[in-house]
C-alpha cells in the first residue's frame, strides 16, 4: 500500500477500483469538473508517485488544484492534443509504456475504448477517460473496468464531495457511492512524493 494522504479512506473504496491494469470511464455533467475530482482521488489512492500523463485538447488542468486534491504535480506530464483521436492515441502510448493516462475526450468509439483497455493491460497502467456525456450513450463499451457518472455533492468548503453512480463494472453491482475528496488528509502534512527516476 502506498503511503498517500488517502490511505485513511482506502478501506471504504470499492475493491475493484484498486485493481491496477484497468481503464475507468468517468462521466460528469457539462460545466462541472466532478470527474476530474474523482480522477485525482483515484490517482492519489491507487497510483501513488508514479508518472501520470494528462492529455486533452484544452489542457486547463490547474497543477496547484491537483496538488490540493492530493496529486503531486511533479509526477504529472501535461499534453495538448489537436483532436480527440490524437488525445486517445497519446493516452494509449502512455498506458502501453506503464504510465497512468488521464484523457479528456468527448467522442469515444468502441474501438478506441478497446484499444485503451488493451494498452493498459499490456503496460499495467491505470487509465482514466473523462467525458462530459449522458449516463447512457449508444457507444457504451464493456471494454473498460468500470463506468461512472459523477455529480458534485453538497459538502463543506474544505471537503468537496462527489456522488458517483456506478453505471457498469466488471464483477460488481451498480450502486451509488459518496466520496469526500479531502477527508482523512491532514491539512498540515507535506506531500513528499519523489518524482520520476529515469525520465527526469
Amino acid at each position: 500500500m502506498f503511503s498517500t494522504p488517502h490511505s485513511a479512506i482506502a478501506p471504504a473504496f470499492p475493491a475493484f477500483l484498486h485493481a491496477c491494469p484497468a481503464v475507468h470511464e468517468l462521466r460528469a455533467p457539462a460545466g462541472t469538473a466532478a470527474h476530474a475530482g474523482l480522477a485525482a482521488l483515484l490517482l492519489g489512492l491507487v497510483w501513488g508517485p508514479r508518472p501520470v500523463l494528462w492529455v486533452s485538447t484544452v489542457p486547463d488542468w490547474y497543477p496547484p488544484g491537483l496538488a490540493w486534491a492530493g496529486v503531486d504535480p511533479a509526477c504529472c506530464l501535461f499534453a495538448q492534443a489537436r483532436d480527440d483521436a490524437e488525445a486517445l492515441g497519446a493516452a494509449e502510448v502512455a498506458l502501453r509504456g506503464g504510465m497512468a493516462g488521464v484523457v479528456a475526450c468527448e467522442a469515444l468509439s468502441r474501438l478506441a475504448a478497446k484499444r485503451l483497455a488493451l494498452a493498459a493491460k499490456q503496460g499495467g497502467g491505470l487509465g482514466l477517460v473523462l467525458r462530459h456525456a449522458a449516463a447512457q450513450t449508444r457507444e457504451d463499451s464493456t471494454a473498460f473496468a468500470s463506468r461512472w457518472m459523477v455529480h458534485p455533492a453538497p459538502g463543506s468548503p474544505h471537503a468537496p464531495a462527489l456522488r458517483a453512480e456506478l453505471l457498469y463494472a466488471k464483477g460488481a453491482m451498480p450502486g451509488t457511492y459518496l466520496f469526500t475528496l479531502k477527508e482523512g488528509w491532514d491539512a498540515e502534512a507535506p506531500l513528499s512524493l519523489p518524482g520520476l527516476r529515469r525520465a527526469g
Binding site: 490547474y62 497543477p63 496547484p64 496538488a67 490540493w68 468548503p157 474544505h158 507535506p190 506531500l191
Partner: peptide, 12 residues
C-alpha cells in the same frame, strides 16, 4: 511542489 494554503480549483 508546495502544498497550497488555500483551496485551488482543478480546472482553471
Amino acid at each position: 511542489w508546495p502544498k497550497p494554503h488555500h483551496p485551488r480549483p482543478l480546472r482553471l
